[in-house]
């Protein structure tokens, strides 16, 4: 099957999911930043006591806060969530991740189990890794002189 068919047929669980940092709603934005730095990810998922997602705090929101008033880094993170924030189920087709990213203009998509609990995070990098599997020659000919791959998601 080709890429288009595979993205329609294969489930989200086939993607390389990342384990996102999790925060409680009363944690501060500073705490969220520390978690994001520690996990080398550009977002943190804010969850309730049952690990169900309340929303996403992403680096784009952080830039807005720094521009408005850096003192707001002491605010509770739940005051600055991206909401609504699209999530998919592990069993949904991969094409649904693409549609959610495009429709909501977000880079991170939550992956939930059948009970609505967070089981992982996907998004641009996971999707690009999946697509790149179909272009092994391109992966092999990454330009000589490029910096070594960074162990992070995003720039």
């Amino acid at each position: 099957m080709g890429l288009h068919q595979n993205m329609t047929a294969e489930p989200v669980g086939r993607l390389e999911l990342r384990q996102p940092p999790l925060c409680g709603p009363t944690d501060s934005v500073r705490t969220a930043i520390e978690q994001m730095r520690a996990k080398r990810l550009g977002c943190v998922i804010v969850v309730d006591t049952e690990q169900k997602p309340l929303g996403l705090f992403a680096e784009s929101k952080l830039t807005q806060l720094l521009a408005e008033d850096p003192a707001r880094l002491d605010d509770p993170v739940c005051d600055h969530l991206t909401n609504p924030w699209p999530c998919v189920r592990e069993s949904d087709p991969i094409a649904m991740v693409l549609g959610a990213m495009q429709a909501a203009n977000v880079r991170f998509i939550g992956v939930l189990d059948k009970d609505g609990r967070v089981v992982g995070l996907t998004g641009q990098k996971g999707l690009m890794e999946y697509v790149s599997e179909h272009f092994p020659q391109q992966v092999m000919v990454q330009r000589v002189g490029s910096p070594p791959p960074a162990e992070r998601e995003g720039a």
Binding site: K125, S132, F135, Q138, V139, Q142, R152, E153, A155
Partner: peptide, 24 residues
Amino acid sequence: RPVFVYDSDSSAAVLTVMAVHGFR
């Protein structure tokens, strides 16, 4: 020294840079 692509590269080259190097 960010990783870049040339305008003459294939579209797939952009996606593989994102996948391999982790740059969005």
